[in-house]
Simulated scan of single mutants.
Amino acid sequence: MRALSFAIMLCLILGSKAQAEDPVQTAQMLIQGQIEAFLNNDAAAAYSFAAPDIKALFPDKDIFFAMVKKSYQPVYHPGNYAFGKSRAIDNGAVVYQEMLITGSDDKDWTAIYQILRQPDGSYKIGSVQVLPNTTSKGI
């Protein structure tokens, strides 16, 4: 069931360029899709959600995947997670989305995602900041 829902979501996101009527909902779909890719150890799918600036820093899916695995463990393999607060600015050109995560080590984290609208109208993950934290601070 999980694999089927991921495949459907991935097709919707990648096939339709993730055009959004609601940028926050699109941001959440992107984040969910990338987390599912990490959980399935699918480097190509995880890399596909990254913005061009991230791809310029990590020009290969395997280099990107290794960096996330090493430096962003709570995002790479979260235990439990839930969307927190969000904020869209510049008419949805940038979305900040908070994630509350319990890592696989049972420690609590807050991840702040920056989702960027691309020139073609699609959205990509521009950055993620992970902070040790147990409560939402807002954005």
Rank of each mutant, 00 (worst) to 15 (best):
Q129G: 05
F49Y: 10
G92R: 09
L57F: 09
D120S: 06
G15P: 11
P23Q: 09
A82E: 15
P23K: 03
V95L: 04
D60V: 05
I115Q: 00
I31D: 03
S127Y: 09
H77Y: 03
M99C: 09
Q129A: 15
F83M: 01
H77L: 11
Y47M: 07
A51Q: 02
Y72N: 08
Q25Y: 07
W109V: 04
A88P: 02
P78T: 01
N91D: 07
L14E: 14
P74N: 04
P52Q: 15
D53V: 15
D53W: 12
S122R: 11
V128K: 01
G138F: 14
D120F: 04
G138M: 11
V95H: 10
A46G: 06
I13H: 00
N41R: 12
K70V: 14
I139L: 09
Y96C: 11
Q129L: 13
I139C: 15
I35F: 07
F38S: 02
G126E: 11
R87G: 09
A46E: 06
V95K: 01
F49E: 02
A43H: 00
L131D: 12
K85I: 08
G33P: 00
L4R: 13
K17W: 04
M9C: 10
P59I: 06
L39Y: 00
P23G: 02
A3M: 07
Q25C: 10
D90A: 15
F38D: 01
V94N: 04
I8D: 09
E98H: 08
A44T: 04
K61M: 05
I125K: 02
E21L: 14
S136T: 10
N40Q: 14
A37N: 03
G126A: 14
Q97C: 09
S86D: 10
G92L: 13
F83D: 00
L100A: 10
A7F: 13
D120H: 03
R87S: 11
S136R: 09
T134K: 15
D53A: 11
G121R: 03
F6C: 12
I63L: 13
P52G: 05
P59S: 10
A44P: 01
F64M: 06
Y81N: 05
S136W: 12
V128N: 03
I89V: 06
I115K: 00
S86I: 04
D90M: 13
N41T: 14
L12H: 09
S48G: 12
G126Q: 09
Y76V: 00
N41W: 08
L10A: 13
L14N: 13
P132M: 05
I35S: 15
L30T: 07
A18N: 15
G103W: 02
E98T: 06
I63D: 11
F49S: 01
A46N: 02
I35Q: 12
P119M: 04
A66L: 06
I101Y: 04
A111E: 12
L116H: 02
I8F: 14
S127E: 05
R2L: 13
A3G: 15
R87L: 10
Y123L: 08
Y96D: 07
F6Q: 14
P132W: 00
I31F: 03
T135H: 11
K69C: 05
A20R: 11
Y47R: 05
D42C: 10
V95P: 03
S104H: 08
I125A: 04
G138L: 10
G33L: 01
L12R: 12
H77S: 05
Q34Y: 05
Y113F: 14
I35K: 08
N133Y: 01
D62K: 08
K124H: 04
T134S: 08
A82M: 11
L14Y: 02
V95C: 12
Q118A: 14
K85M: 15
